[in-house]
Design a protein around this nucleic acid. Structure first.
Lengths: 350, 350
DNA sequence: ATTGCGATTTATAACGATATAATTACGGTC
DNA sequence: GACCGTAATTATATCGTTATAAATCGCAAT
């Protein structure tokens, strides 16, 4: 086909388009583009997919026309035909009400998904059903191309299930399974270790740490880092009993308040979350104990919140937005092709 | 479980999948149910839809078989055929970093959507594109059956667009347009009014309020409530200049701190958000001003955060989770059939 | 027996995309 | 000019569902 022919074809297409404009306000489909270009639907499809068998010239022309009329492929049709959903599911545990936890993750994820065809679907996991249910459901019914979840456990059933079925996923936190799996984690060991060292260096003689529920892997990491530090320093310590970072904040405060009134009370607290840190501060306040003198505190900071808290508290930062972003990117890499797992792991430093 | 065990399990899963191609383990479709019941696909479809033309006995039998084999309709196919997406889009502004704002909304929304066929998709609205873009995109390309958005403006373009096109939506906050539209709002007028009255009753003589950016309707409501109260009481007042609730929290603190060092400083602050309230508290602390004596504060509380803040701060509660829940329910009602708009409006009391 | 009718069920055709197989066009070779 | 191979395009079938139209059945009325 000569250049002139192509130009002619283009002109024809253009005028037809003007005619069609008035006729159909309807949503443009491949058929629309096909009619405008005078090509077959199949050709248009392949042209837009940049298939090498389609002449470069044609590809460009199709691309142009598609852009002109604002053609966007129908997700449902693509999904039905290809089996790909273009959906990433974020399984959220409503217990994670730790202020901006979910928000930060979501912001990071959407940023990672930006410019891709992927949509982010929030799948709640209601407390009256087993943790694994939403994951199984998404996988079995192909509701998404990839799953993101959090609060990973040492022998996490979700990880097992997804690995067995070779289903793309990424989780925040990691298991203790022998098999490697994709994850993004924060170095909670170092967090607790360094927090303890800081407290001790500041003069604390008996440390206390409030841990997450024991079923989560990061509870073990925190505990391990904590124990290593206190043993190295030979300092007194205790682990908060009866409350966890998941407890209602009032319960945490009640516990800490009570403990502060007892003999041999701890004088250094490590808090893995912002709310629990505030609860410790409130307890100290209610006991008229002065922070930084009677009681010391190192908290994990995941938002800008503690910049406004007085008296100033020593914090160590965990970037959850970045974690979300990383998870998104790694998951996309995994979905694109089966990337080697060692490339799908990331440990954020303290 | 050992590495080899996992690998073996993986292999098994893989081969099962291959064998299952046409077997009973394949994802069940209408066709599967049709074959099992000896009925036509059409009949099964209608039976599951509880069409009255299908014999009751048949309906029950189909329902039973479908349940037995765990049949679930394919969303993509349904969407393609019916045009309904079974998706609700929540358009999120990443600027809404007001701690748990988004999380609360999402929790409420998922609770409202629970048990329905609707999925919640998070659509971010990036600051480098016009606010209306994601909404227009969702509407034009039928990416969702309904839209939820927040931070409504007096002449909100999104509301106009969606109303004009009769597209189901609900927003948090309301416009000042002549046309009624669905919304869920909080009574910010009363909030500011009552907050001011509380401060005055407690002895404050010059009030200050930090407002949201002026383009949002609720900024006007807050201002109006505030102004009404201070005029009624004939007390001094000012409106924070140069900072809004959307400002970086450090900037808010810097502003308040500076203002507190100047003559004729306000002695009563009204904060529409938790972070700004903390910034005021931090400023007071940094000036060694005592809260409740030198400076008073009434804050809007949307989480349990302030239960842990000391000294205790007077707050007025806004339930964002409930707002999300309400929005979900009202939107579903609107989607189900065109409910009269007056039934789709809710004003949460202070 | 034939017709008609309501009650059920079924066949067919789409929705919009893509994978696969088939077709056309074109230049070069003998 | 017939033949071939490559490049480019097109036809057909299909994903799983539902809307529409058509068909079947049993039974009563004629």
């Amino acid at each position: 086909m000569s250049l002139d022919d192509l130009k002619e074809k283009g002109r024809r297409a253009k005028s037809e388009r003007l005619v069609a404009r008035s006729g159909a306000d309807a949503k443009p489909t491949l058929k629309t583009v096909a009619e405008l270009t005078g090509l077959a639907v199949t050709t248009v499809s392949r042209a837009l997919a940049d298939a090498p068998q389609i002449a470069l010239e044609t590809r460009q022309r199709v691309r142009q026309v598609a852009a002109d009329i604002g053609y966007l492929p129908d997700r449902a049709a693509q999904r039905l035909r290809t089996g790909r959903t273009n959906v990433i599911s974020l399984v959220l545990d409503p217990h994670e009400e730790i202020l901006g936890y979910a928000t930060s993750m979501i912001n990071g994820l959407t940023e990672a998904l930006r410019g891709t065809a992927y949509h982010l679907v929030i799948t709640p996991h209601f407390s009256d059903t087993p943790q694994i249910e939403p994951v199984r459901h998404i996988m079995r019914n192909r509701m998404a191309d990839g799953i993101v979840f959090t609060r990973t456990e040492p022998g996490d059933e979700r990880v097992k299930l997804l690995m067995e079925n070779n289903f793309p996923f990424i989780c925040h936190g990691r298991t203790e399974l022998a098999t490697a799996h994709p994850y993004v984690d924060y170095d909670n060991y170092s967090f607790a270790y360094q927090a303890a060292k800081k407290l001790i260096a500041a003069g604390a003689s008996k440390l206390s740490i409030i841990l997450p529920p024991e079923r989560f892997t990061f509870a073990h990491h925190l505990k391990h880092g904590f124990m290593t530090a206190v043993r190295e320093e030979g300092v007194g310590f205790e682990i908060a009993k009866g409350v966890t970072l998941d407890s209602k904040s009032d319960d945490i405060r009640d516990y800490v308040f009570r403990r502060m009134g007892e003999p041999e009370r701890p004088d250094g607290y490590i808090c893995g979350g912002e709310v629990s840190a505030l609860a410790v501060m409130a307890s100290a306040y209610d006991h008229s104990l002065e922070l930084g003198r009677d009681i010391r505190l190192v908290a994990k900071q995941t938002s800008g919140l503690f910049d406004q808290i007085r008296p100033r508290v020593e914090t160590i930062y965990e970037d959850l937005t970045e974690a979300g972003f990383l998870m998104g990117k790694l998951l996309l890499k995994r979905i694109g092709g089966p990337a080697p797992i060692h490339e799908l792991q990331a440990l954020q430093t303290v």
